[in-house]
Amino acid sequence: MLLVIWTATLLVAVLVAANSKVKYFDPKNVLHQSALSLSFDKSLVDALSKLNLDLAGSVIHFQQGDCFCQAIAQSHINSVEKLAENKQFKNIIINVDEHKSLIRFIPSVPAVAVIDKANKLRYFGPYSSGMFCNQGDGLVEPFIKNWQTAATGATIISQSQGCYCNLSEL
């Protein structure tokens, strides 16, 4: 009986600790409000273009040095990078610590953007949702796999919960 109580207590403690790390990707709804603008897609691509990067046909990985969730999601990030390479996309890694002007677009990290070969934003948001941000919960993969599918605008995911480091808190 003591073993059952100990196991149950340990399980509850693990669940409480895990839930304390779950955060909203866009906790202040700044991205959500910005994405309502018809010019958001172009504004983000223009801001990235100022970094003198060749953006057409790229997957842009936004990171921040002190983000614990970056380590948690690293295997998923690696699989997204491999998928991008297989689909002839360039992988570009941007550390937001070095490009603070981008923080107005990026509420949390790890985050990712897909820019198609016509230089149009197709996806922007988290890699995935859920506590461990793993491949089974991936949000970005369909936008890399099906980049040729006609789209009228980008898909912006702002209302996701998972392991994210909110940039406004750093």
Score class of each variant (00 low, 15 high):
residue 1 M to C: 08
residue 3 L to H: 01
residue 5 I to D: 01
residue 7 T to V: 13
residue 9 T to H: 05
residue 11 L to P: 02
residue 13 A to T: 04
residue 13 A to S: 11
residue 14 V to T: 00
residue 14 V to N: 02
residue 16 V to Q: 03
residue 16 V to S: 04
residue 17 A to S: 05
residue 17 A to L: 06
residue 21 K to W: 14
residue 23 K to T: 12
residue 27 P to K: 02
residue 27 P to R: 07
residue 28 K to E: 15
residue 29 N to K: 11
residue 31 L to K: 08
residue 31 L to W: 07
residue 32 H to T: 11
residue 34 S to V: 05
residue 37 S to K: 10
residue 37 S to D: 09
residue 38 L to N: 14
residue 39 S to F: 10
residue 39 S to P: 09
residue 40 F to Q: 04
residue 45 V to I: 01
residue 47 A to L: 06
residue 50 K to S: 13
residue 54 D to G: 12
residue 55 L to A: 05
residue 57 G to T: 02
residue 60 I to R: 04
residue 61 H to I: 07
residue 61 H to C: 02
residue 63 Q to E: 12
residue 63 Q to C: 10
residue 64 Q to K: 14
residue 65 G to V: 12
residue 66 D to V: 09
residue 67 C to E: 06
residue 68 F to C: 06
residue 68 F to I: 09
residue 68 F to H: 10
residue 69 C to D: 02
residue 71 A to N: 12
residue 75 S to D: 15
residue 75 S to I: 10
residue 75 S to T: 13
residue 75 S to P: 13
residue 76 H to W: 01
residue 76 H to V: 00
residue 76 H to K: 00
residue 76 H to N: 00
residue 77 I to E: 07
residue 79 S to E: 13
residue 80 V to Q: 07
residue 80 V to Y: 04
residue 81 E to W: 07
residue 82 K to E: 15
residue 82 K to Q: 15
residue 84 A to V: 04
residue 84 A to S: 03
residue 84 A to L: 04
residue 85 E to N: 12
residue 86 N to V: 03
residue 88 Q to V: 05
residue 89 F to R: 00
residue 93 I to V: 15
residue 93 I to K: 14
residue 94 I to M: 09
residue 95 N to Q: 12
residue 96 V to E: 05
residue 96 V to R: 03
residue 97 D to H: 13
residue 98 E to A: 15
residue 100 K to F: 13
residue 102 L to T: 02
residue 102 L to V: 06
residue 102 L to M: 02
residue 104 R to V: 13
residue 104 R to K: 15
residue 105 F to E: 01
residue 105 F to C: 02
residue 105 F to V: 04
residue 109 V to C: 10
residue 110 P to L: 09
residue 110 P to M: 05
residue 111 A to C: 12
residue 113 A to N: 09
residue 114 V to E: 08
residue 116 D to Y: 06
residue 117 K to Y: 08
residue 119 N to W: 01
residue 120 K to P: 11
residue 122 R to W: 11
residue 123 Y to D: 05
residue 126 P to N: 13
residue 126 P to K: 12
residue 127 Y to H: 10
residue 135 Q to I: 08
residue 136 G to A: 05
residue 140 V to T: 05
residue 141 E to P: 02
residue 141 E to Y: 10
residue 143 F to K: 03
residue 143 F to T: 06
residue 144 I to K: 11
residue 146 N to Q: 07
residue 150 A to F: 14
residue 151 A to C: 04
residue 153 G to V: 08
residue 153 G to Q: 15
residue 157 I to Y: 11
residue 157 I to V: 15
residue 159 Q to L: 11
residue 164 Y to P: 10
residue 166 N to Y: 04
residue 166 N to S: 03
residue 167 L to G: 00
residue 170 L to Y: 12
